[in-house]
């Protein structure tokens, strides 16, 4: 995945079953963002892999004041890349472990 300067990681062990998963997002490289992020804390949130889209969460983070409106696409892409990796892993690894 492209380095957006925004890091998104799993905030919990993925058991491969739950649709809702905890993620943690923080800014690694503020220079890659158009606006100045509110602070460089790690933002933890739950994401429903089946019902929600990264764009929804990114917009809510902008509305909450964490990021500038101009960075909503970068934040959404960062979340989307991590969600895609989680779903990739679930499709390939978990069936073998069942």
């Amino acid at each position: 995945a492209e380095d957006t300067g925004v890091r998104v990681e799993l905030a919990e062990e993925d058991d491969g079953r739950k649709s809702s998963i905890a993620l943690r997002l923080w800014v690694e490289d503020p220079k890659k963002l158009k606006g100045k992020p509110k602070d460089n804390g790690a933002i933890e949130f739950t994401f429903d892999l089946e019902k929600e889209t990264p764009d929804d969460v990114a917009q809510e983070m902008v509305d909450a004041g964490f990021f500038h409106e101009n960075d909503v696409k970068i934040v959404a892409k960062s979340i989307r890349d991590r969600v895609a990796l989680i779903q990739w892993r679930r499709e390939r690894i978990w069936p073998m472990l069942q």
Partner: peptide, 27 residues
């Protein structure tokens, strides 16, 4: 924990805590 802050937006809860130094890329 005084370093953790909870923010609600559009019904979603965001928990903000300091990023461990080890995870911040050297500027």
């Amino acid at each position: 924990n005084s370093l953790t802050q909870v923010v609600h937006s559009a019904g979603r809860r965001f928990i903000v805590s300091p990023v461990p130094e080890s995870r911040l890329r050297e500027q």
